[in-house]
């Protein structure tokens, strides 16, 4: 099993004729991902790597059933392409671009909520269910170097660091059920608390790893969910950026305008509340693999 994505998931690629897409769609296909169609306005009727290309999401959906749409679209065009997928009712929309204007993200997320569509990102690197399928970037051209099937579910606010931790696990002989890069932006569609219940229900997942960062209250919300008993499997976590707390306020890194949240968003507090929820929190990167091993041994 896995969450969100498996070898039967039918994937649509928006912006399929772009440079990044050209590269990654091939990697996705080589990995076994079921890419059924692409969208590239003005290029309807073309083919890319044997995949039919359509002018719009709706015209693609007339010919194909789709479970996931992934947007290989530059940030300034994400609003239009994201709303197109949401309005067409694609069940899961994955937004990879970094630098999407906040008001655009808010609009996509608001519409998605109204019509019942799940959004992953913006600024997600995508997701992978090792041995089954991948969407977006995880693993690049060599997914087997970083990922193998196994019992650890991963959720990361940093796409790169989630892959880094997966690679360390893989090198230690520990595989993954699904890795989901939820995105580093202030406003994102899918959070830790949305995915924990899915990992809870997935029999293959025995341990979950969370990679957190400063700002927002996402890790705090996860800790509350765990403390309420909303998650029964062991969790290991790492929170980057504690040193930022010692720098003067107002720095470029991690500012989220959280006027009234007080110390919400401080990495030290995130670590404290996660520990109170019996999460194993690594202080250093190299502690993560031993803690995951310990957690696996406990179940």
């Amino acid at each position: 099993m896995s969450i969100l994505l498996d070898s039967t998931s039918r994937v649509l690629v928006q912006g399929i004729t772009g440079r990044e897409a050209a590269l990654h769609v091939r990697y996705m296909l080589e990995y076994g991902t079921c890419v059924v169609a692409g969208v590239s306005p003005g290029k309807g009727g073309d083919e890319f790597a044997g995949i039919p290309v359509y002018d719009s999401v709706r015209s693609a959906l007339k010919e194909h059933a789709v479970d996931v749409s992934v947007l290989f679209v530059p940030s300034r065009f994400v609003r239009d392409a994201g709303l197109e997928a949401v309005e067409a009712g694609v069940p899961l929309v994955v937004i990879l671009a970094e630098g999407v204007p906040h008001h655009d993200a808010a609009e996509i997320l608001a519409r998605a909520r109204e019509v019942g569509v799940r959004v992953l990102g913006p600024n997600s690197q995508g997701m992978i269910s090792p041995g089954k399928a991948k969407v977006g970037g995880p693993g690049g051209d060599r997914p087997d170097l970083m990922f193998r099937p196994g019992p650890v579910g991963l959720i990361s606010r940093s796409g790169g660091m989630g892959a880094e931790v997966s690679m360390a696990l893989t090198k230690a002989g520990i595989g993954q059920s699904t890795y989901v890069a939820i995105g580093g932006d202030l406003l994102i569609g899918t959070e830790f608390t949305d995915l924990l219940p899915l990992f809870e229900a997935d029999p293959e997942t025995r341990v979950v790893f969370l990679f957190g960062e400063p700002g927002t209250g996402r890790e705090e919300a996860a800790a509350r969910m765990i403390r309420r008993g909303g998650f029964g499997k062991p969790i290991v976590a790492f929170i980057a950026g504690e040193f930022l707390e010692n720098l003067p306020r107002g720095l470029h890194f991690g500012h989220t305008g959280a006027l009234i949240e007080g110390d919400l968003g401080r990495p030290s507090r995130k670590k404290a509340v996660l520990r109170e929820a019996a999460v194993r929190v690594a202080d250093h990167l190299d502690e993560i693999v031993p803690l995951v091993k310990e957690a696996l041994a406990s179940v």
Binding site: S158, G159, G160, F238, A240, F253, L285
Partner: peptide, 9 residues
């Protein structure tokens, strides 16, 4: 890359 910069620093 975001998380790596924060982590390494």
């Amino acid at each position: 890359s975001g998380g790596a910069a924060l982590t390494a620093l």
